[in-house]
Design a protein around this nucleic acid. Sequence first.
DNA 1: CCATGTGAAGTTCTTCACAGCT
DNA 2: AGCTGTGAAGAACTTCACATGG
Lengths: 215, 215
Amino acid sequence: MSTTEQISGASIGRLPLYLRELTELSDKGVATVSSEALAEASGVQSALLRRDLSQFGSYGTRGVGYNVQQLRRAILRIIGGTRVRRVIIVGAGNLGQALVRHAGFADLNFKVVGLVDVAPELVGTEVNGVVVTHPDRMIETIRSTGAELAVVATPASAAQEVVDLALEAGITSVLNMAPVALHVPADVAVRNVDFAQELQILSYHQARRRVVEHA
Amino acid sequence: MSTTEQISGASIGRLPLYLRELTELSDKGVATVSSEALAEASGVQSALLRRDLSQFGSYGTRGVGYNVQQLRRAILRIIGGTRVRRVIIVGAGNLGQALVRHAGFADLNFKVVGLVDVAPELVGTEVNGVVVTHPDRMIETIRSTGAELAVVATPASAAQEVVDLALEAGITSVLNMAPVALHVPADVAVRNVDFAQELQILSYHQARRRVVEHA
DNA sequence: CCATGTGAAGTTCTTCACAGCT
DNA sequence: AGCTGTGAAGAACTTCACATGG
């Protein structure tokens, strides 16, 4: 439980998967779960799950399994999920609006506190209870709402400039959905989500499959 | 140019990034690009880019760089982007509809040929020119349209059953946006995209940052 | 002289397999 | 007897640094 705990990047990426299944088990009233069962539900190997969990302490009992509640709370603490984290979404196009309307973030303690877009017909309106503001007022919006995570859902051409504004306002974590590589200082965390990229990766598998089939 | 070329998984994930930048360079009329410049634009290290590219042949000239057109075509062929790939989207909620409306897939030669949802008020309507059909007719829809990629944008509770239907219809590549681990045969490719997961990973970085700041 | 292509080293991540605890 | 936690091995991935070719 030290503050200098260093969890590997790959492991951190899986913690949300485990958390999701643990929450489900918890809701069902299940008290303990084996690494085998939790791993299966999460889509990973049991040895990998055990190694992941062992990195931040021992929440399992040999011969029994893991205490669902304890483990869930532990992961929740590690990823900061015990506290509300405010999110600002930049870009109120198809994707940005879909995100604002998306249920499920609230359950995880994320709160969308702002939505930003340049379109005059959108500025001032509300989407799912969130007011749309103009990028000119983005820094102000971020500061007044206390947003700490920014989601970039703009066209690629606008992504870098809005991220620069966000950084100026003190944002240090960015979820980038624009199909472009963002340039940020080393201490800023960026995660990229790109549907087109994912489809292209799947397309590669399809292409290879065809080769194999024709062999 | 052998058919047994084996490109590492991590490399394949980056090919779309390179392709994106190469297409931009191509549009600008740039003839050659150095690994340094292309890597910078793509957000990777130049040595990594060179290693990636060297895996499927030599498209560079020492002392000069890479031929933009040639390299672009080569990557396009590898990921199967020279051919139209038909996509069916399952789930016409916020996300599914945003995807159907999303411009940019067409440029990459992806065509949305079907949209599936259970909601009676949606079935039979059109979204961006694509007719919404009921899951009962999904197998038929997949077969008649020739869809080869399926995007799962349903609630988690419905994801596994729709994927099972898709597999039955012959789908072998799935982009899963539902927050649940899908179980599929080993020869089916699945890519998971989960916003909540990404936000949680960023949240971890925020949590760590706080610890450091308070040190 | 310049930038690619690549052995070699280094790092990170995963799996194996079993000792150790309950 | 059962399941975790982990050393050790293995696999995958990235970076270094320079020989090589244009």
